[in-house]
Every structure is written in C-alpha cells, then in structure tokens.
Nucleic acid binder design. Sequence first.
DNA 1: GCCGTTTTCGGCCCGACTGTTTTCAGTCG
Length: 564
Amino acid sequence: MNNQQIAQIFYEIAEILEMQDVKFKPFAYRKAAQSIEALTRDIKEIYKEGKLRDIPGVGESISKKIEELIKTGKLKAYEKLKKKMPVNLQELGSIQGMGPKTIKKLYQKLKIKNLKELERAAKLGKIRKLEGLGEKREEEILENIGFKKKTGKRFLLGLILPEAEAIKNALNQLKEVKKIELTGSLRRMKETIGDVDILAVSADPGKTMDFFAKMNDVEKVLVKGLTKSSIRLRSGINADIRLVPLNSFGSALQYMTGNKSHNIKLRNIAKDKGLKLSEYGIFKGNKQVSGKTEEEVYRKLGLRYIEPELREDTGEIDAAKKNKLPDLINYNDVKGDLQMHTNYSDGNNTVLEMAQYAKKIGHKFIAITDHAGNLKIAGGMTAREITAQGKEINKIKSIKVFHGIEANIQKNGAIDVPDNILKDIDVVIAAIHSGFKQDKTTITNRLLTAMDNKHVNIIAHPTGRLLLKRKGYEFDLQKVFDKARERGIALEINAFPDRLDLDSDKVRLAVENKVKLSIGTDAHSKEQLDFYRLGIAVARRGWANKNDIINAYSIDKLEKFLKR
DNA sequence: GCCGTTTTCGGCCCGACTGTTTTCAGTCG
C-alpha cells in the first residue's frame, strides 16, 4: 500500500458518500486524500512514528483507517461501501461530465459498472430515456469517451506553453481586450497541464468570446457565454476563458491560478477576518474592499505575496503569514545552460550555432556536453572527436563555452570514459542510460560509486523518469543527497519538457539538504535552448533560491565549483 | 469526519454554465 493507493481509496470513499448524499464527509475524505497524495515521505514511516494525525485533514477516524490499510492491506469500511456501489469509479469518473450523481443513477437504473458498459448503453440509446438525462447528455458521454480514448488527460507544460502564449497574444491584439493573463496550472508552471485557463478584461465581451470561439486552432466549442467560454483545441487540450470586470482582475487571477486547496485556505483566512473572498474580490458585507490586483488580495489577508509557482498548499500560506517565504530564484537569474548536444553526437546543430543562439537568448555561458563512452545509439564521441571538439570550442570568443561530456554510469557504477580523458574536461556529466530495472539498493550503490569518481560534476536526470511514459528508477534519495553535498556534485534539473528531472518535490528536498542543483536543457537543437525557463520553473516550484542553482553563479564562481 | 489567535461544538469555498428543468440539480474549476 503506497501513498497513492491509500489516497485513491479515500477519494473513492468520498465519491461513494457523495452519491449517498452524505453531507461534509466527502469533503473531509477528499482533503485527507489530497494531503496524503502530496506527502513527500512514505506514509508507512509517518505511521511508524505515530504521527499520522499531523497530516492535515487526518483525524481520529481516518488515521485508524490508514492504520488498517497499512497493517492488513484492506479496509472493511471501504469494502462495505463498495458492495453497495461496485463500479469502477476511477474509470467512469475520468469521463468529463460524469459526476457521482450520474454514476449512481446509471448503476441503479442500468447496472453500468465500467466504461465499456457505459459506451454500450449510450450507443444503444438507453441513457437518453432516463429521467434527468437526455439526448444531449448521451451524445456528450459518447463524445467524451472518444476523447478519453484518443488522448491521455494531461499534456506536457513545455509543449502547451507556446501554444497557450500564442492564443493569449492573439487575443491581446483585440483593442477591446484591456488585460489578459494565462492562469491555472500553466501559471503555476506545473509539469503537466490539464487545460489552458485564460483570464481577461474586455470592453466588448460578445466580440471577444466570438473571436475566442472562432480561432484557427478551435476544434469544438464546448461552452460559450459572456463571462465564460470553453473550447477544445486541435491539439486535444481544452481552453477556458473567463472575463471579469477590471476591479476584479486581481482576485479573479488569484482564484483561477489556484490550486484549489490553496484557494480554500485563503477563503478561510478571509472568513476568519470577517471578509468574503471570491473571484470578484474581497468583500466586507456587500462592499468590495479589494480585488484589483493580486498583491492587494494577499496583503488584505495579512499575507506576503505568494509567487504562483508556490501555490500548491504545501506550506506556502503559513510561510507567507510568518514572512518566511523563500527568496525564489528569478527567471533572469540564470546565466547559462549546463547540458546540450551538438552534431558531434546526436544533436542537430554545430557548436558555433549553439553558442550563437545561447548568446542571443541572453546566456553568459554554456556547456557543450555531447555523449561520450559506449552509448552508441546516441553517437558517443571517440577520444579523437573529443579533442577536435575542444579545439572548436576554444575558437569561440563571444560567450564562455565550457567543454563538457555526458558519460554513462555503467551497471557497476563505473564511468565509461577513462580518467585520462575526463581530467581535461570542464564539465563531466554522468547519467544512467541503461539498466533501469535494477532494484533500489543496486541503483543507489551505482549512483554513489559514480559520484566517487573524482571528475564527475553533475548527475544528469537523476531519476530517469519520462513524463506520461516512464516512472523512473528508485534509489535512496537521502544517501545520494548526502554524497552530492560531501563531494561537491550538483544534481541536475533536466529542463527537457518530458523529463523535468529532478521534479520540484525532489528539488525542494535537495534544497533542504543543501545540495547544489544545475539546470540543463539537454537541447538537441538550438531552439530547444529555450527550455531553460522550464528548468527555472521547476527550481522555483522547489523553493530554490539563486544560491542553490549553480547556473546563477558568476563564471568565476562556477569554475571554482566545477574544479571542486 | 475534521478542526479551532474569537470555537472541543457547530460549522464546513464559491460561482458559472448546461440540460432538462418550469425553479433547479449536477458538474466543473
């Protein structure tokens, strides 16, 4: 039973209780499930320490249920509920428009238990005959099943951000649009995005909504009103827009940026102060006392301004109250990029082209880190090629270029490039590229052995995960942190859109452990150097300040770090 | 079921849109 599985059971309990019209309990179970999901430690450890009730939303009853789950792997209360409602909630609930009440009705009237049965019933026209449902709902269900089958539910931040920014810019061209921002998980720079949320102020809502619904990329209009509209883009992602009065822009921006539990906490703070917070502002009775800017909203609630990337309800509100928010690294603090590839291995551009583009986007330095050693598929360089590349790098004067390589950590932890080559390399990146299926202890030792190599500077994409594809291997994080700190090795925040590895939770732990981090785009073409801001976003979401990130160092300081 | 610098009992975030309704329930964010 891991954290996610336990959380899932509580989500399902919430759902079933909601079907039974039980008041308030669903909210409590959902809250507990969210907290458990957000834990950065194994809940079993917390249980062993007897500290389950320190988890927000976990009280007497839920802590006992967690104990039962850990001890027996089962939960009697859950199984009892499940008997009354033996349906695949996760599956049915993942279809847009299917909430607890509809699921319940469909089970009671048509015995629908899963997606397959739902699809069959819809195709046979059985759903439209039920009271409270109709033809349109039936069509909607069928369509959403089709949508679910076609795409996964989430999209990579790095791929959606440019598309969303293009939409924002197009809308911003309209003269009646006075203000516009991307909001939601995009603004929080979450690694994957469920949909695109846009907030705007418009002097002509009708015209703005018409434009929004008729843009080139629109596949289907889902909802269209004067304050709120929703479309599906050809790329498969949904985009929502909300129009509000200028006086409410700040509170609406706050509200739409979320996340949900961050917002709920803020509303509770407002309430404790005798105020009411909604997307339209902060109200005292009927009088609006705040809402034009986000800064003002936080101030009115007695909080320091909280950067969007931190708004995940993981301690930031408390920190804002106590004036203990981190001094986050800024997007312009990063002065260079510490992982990229050229045509010496599997990249598309030359050393010079990479350097020129890096200069253009404002970098002061880069490290060229082509594959070396025995990774043949990625065109690992030979000793002779490494020397030739070094000469080419030395010719570049417009920007500081470090000569690096990306070497492989072999199954026994050895680096597959000999020391006599490594000793002349400025930046040695080591990474695991094979043997992902080894057990936790083996991988841990492998990483620790690699970090004992006296030339290694950076461990790249430390967990090996690929977003929406591969989970990544497990290892003892604490041991690797300790070794990195002792040995003066940085752990990478790989900024390639489907990696973002380390992730922000692990970055936060690394920062707490005083481990240095490096940002590398892993660019294989010059345009991909733009991904560096995704890496900064991960750092910010991990509460890092600029001293934690070696890319924010001056060149002198960075050179010292690299010489260890 | 959880929780408390106004509470150990009495509250629990708030509003828009749609479909199937003739006054509103359900879903979503």
